[in-house]
Design a protein around this nucleic acid. Structure first.
Lengths: 133, 133
DNA sequence: CTAAGCCTTACAGCAACAGGAAGGTCAAGA
DNA sequence: TCTTGACCTTCCTGTTGCTGTAAGGCTTAG
C-alpha cells in the first residue's frame, strides 16, 4: 500500500512517516517502479507501535529503544519494565514541577485586584528582584 | 555595567539577554565606545521581570504582553489578571493531560511480569492496532 | 609581549514535526 | 487525447527558547 493508506491505518500522518524514515527510526520501505513507497503489514505494525508509544509520552529516542525490544524476540520483559518505570518517574517529576507552577499562578490570580486600577500585585511580584536564596 | 554583570544581577545568562534583544523582547541598550552593551537599573529591572515571568511558565509572547503592562502606568490590573488566569488554565490543562498519561503508564508498569521472559504485556499493549473509537 | 578574561557577531543545532514549493504520476471523465 | 484532481516525490523553512561554537576584538595584569 502507498503512504497515505499506511498513514490512515497507523494513525500517523504521511509527513510523520517520512520523517521517521529520515531519522532512521523505521527502515526504508520498498519502492514501487514509480518511486512510491510501498508498505506491508509488518511496517504498519511498527508504525502503530510507534504511534502508541508516542501517545504514552515516550520521546523518539525512547521509542527507538522500545521498537528494538518490540522487534527482538530475545528481549527480557524486565528491560521493558525498566524503560517504562523510568518514563513514569519522568512524568511524575514533570507533574510535580507543573503543580508547583500552578500554585504560584493561583496565588497571583487570587492576589490581584482585577479592576480598572493600575495597581497590580501580580506586576509587583513579577518585578521582585532576584532572590539570593 | 557590562552584560556579564547584568546577567549576574538578573539571573539570566548573557546569551539569553542577547537573545531577548535579538527578538525585540527588550530594547537595545546603549553601547560604550568600544561597542560593549551598557545596562542601567531600569534594564536590570526589566530583565528580572522577564526571568520571573519565564519561571512562572509564561511563553516569550506572553512575556512580551506582560512586560508591556509592566512598563505601562496606564494599565488596568484586570488585563494582567486575565493573562494570568489564562495561563493558569493552560497549566491546568497540561497537568490533566500528563495525569492521564501517568495513569496509562502506571497501568503498564503494574501489568508487566518484569522478569527474564520475552513475554511482555507492555509490548503487547503498545503493539495494539489503532482503535476505531 | 603575551595570556586570560572579557566582549562582539554569526551560524549550527536541539525536538518533533508541519507547511509549502516545485515537480512527477496515475486514473477517470469529456 | 487532453485535462483535471488526487496522489506521490524531494527539499527548504518555520516552530520554541535558547545553548554551543567559531572567529575575532578589547582590556588588564604579569
Amino acid at each position: 500500500m502507498n503512504i497515505s493508506e499506511a498513514a490512515k491505518l497507523s494513525g500517523l500522518s504521511a509527513k510523520t512517516i517520512r520523517y521517521y524514515e529520515s531519522i532512521d527510526l523505521i527502515s526504508p520501505p520498498r519502492r514501487a517502479a514509480n518511486g512510491y513507497r510501498r508498505y506491508g503489514e509488518a511496517d504498519i505494525a511498527s508504525l502503530c507501535f510507534l504511534r502508541q508509544a508516542r501517545q504514552f509520552g515516550f520521546s523518539i529516542d525512547q521509542c527507538r529503544l522500545l521498537l528494538g525490544l518490540y522487534k527482538n524476540p530475545q528481549r527480557r520483559s524486565a528491560e521493558v519494565h525498566q524503560l517504562v518505570s523510568d518514563k513514569l518517574e519522568e512524568v511524575d517529576a514533570h507533574i510535580r514541577e507543573l503543580a508547583d507552577t500552578r500554585e504560584l499562578l493561583a496565588n497571583l490570580v487570587g492576589a490581584c485586584a482585577n479592576d480598572e486600577d493600575a495597581d497590580c500585585v501580580i506586576i509587583d511580584r513579577l518585578a521582585g528582584q532576584k532572590e539570593q536564596a
